[in-house]
């Protein structure tokens, strides 16, 4: 392995692990105000929703139509998983629809 790759990997690992472990280690036993507690509960889901949207949007040189298959796949996965909770089935169906539509669109 190249030295640079190892160093970059260790740096990234440190950033990721600190972001996962430090908050709980530092603040885990503190009593937080109710609204701050609610904000902490709601914000990660909102961030996931935001990042998901970013990946579904067209990149440079793309049109909305070019990412329509991705959006359709995600909608199919949602439509299956919300009522049934079947994650794997939803994932496979969503990917199958996205793959099929990517050929058509």
């Amino acid at each position: 392995m190249r030295t640079e790759v190892v160093v970059i990997g260790l740096i990234l690992s440190a950033v990721v692990m600190i972001s996962r472990v430090a908050p709980m280690a530092l603040l885990g036993q503190r009593q937080l105000p109710v609204r701050l507690r609610r904000l902490i509960e709601i914000l990660p889901g909102c961030a996931i929703a935001g990042f998901m949207t970013v990946w579904a949007l067209p990149g440079e040189g793309e049109t909305l139509l070019s990412t329509a298959s991705v959006v359709a796949g995600a909608m199919v996965a949602l439509a299956i998983c919300v009522p049934t909770g079947r994650l794997l089935l939803a994932m496979l169906a969503g990917l199958a629809v996205a793959a099929g539509l990517s050929l058509l669109l």
Binding site: G45, I48, A49, F51, M52, W55, A56, S69, V70, V71, G73, A74, M75, A77, L78, C81, L87, A90, M91, G94, L95, A98, A99, S102
Partner: peptide
């Protein structure tokens, strides 16, 4: 489509 479908399932 994988990352978008994956995050949709997390939601």
């Amino acid at each position: 489509a994988t990352p978008v479908v994956f995050f949709a399932l997390m939601i």
